[in-house]
Amino acid sequence: MKSKIIKIVLAFVLIAIGVVAYLWFMPHRNVQSVDAYKTIDATELVNEFLANKEKANILYLDSEEGESKVLIVTGTVSKISKDQLGQYVLLLKKDADKMGVSCTFTLESNSQVAGIKIGDTVKVKGVIRSGAEYDEDLDLIENVIIEKSALIIN
């Protein structure tokens, strides 16, 4: 009887340790392994935010855990740069548009950008972080921000 109780207590302790370890070491979401919510043109995505910011935020951003929608964005590369972490950033924007979609790659997917030139049409998969906005008074241009990007090649 006594050994049975010990076994049960031990099992509970192991489960508790397992749960704590899982929460502690829980990996970050792998954006590239998540099915994309939709494929959308860069201009169209920007315009959705400009037309109705609240509606677009509700549609694309996640409130519970910050795991917002994973999107595949198509567009023309208008700028190639690197951020302070050394991650490549492709700005997908038509010449006529004021704002675009800024896609930040990761140190792992950076090498995909090597062959990309300004003017290329690309398809980028990543997670949306925030929408486009334009403040006329301050002339502050805010692009749609996509991170954890990788190219979709086909």
Binding site: N57, S63, E64, E67, G131, E133
Partner: peptide
């Protein structure tokens, strides 16, 4: 990161910037 984004903390869906 999940906690930080949630409604109890920064509520980043309602206040994305």
């Amino acid at each position: 990161q999940k906690h930080y984004n949630s409604k109890k903390f920064l509520n980043t869906k309602k206040f994305p910037k």
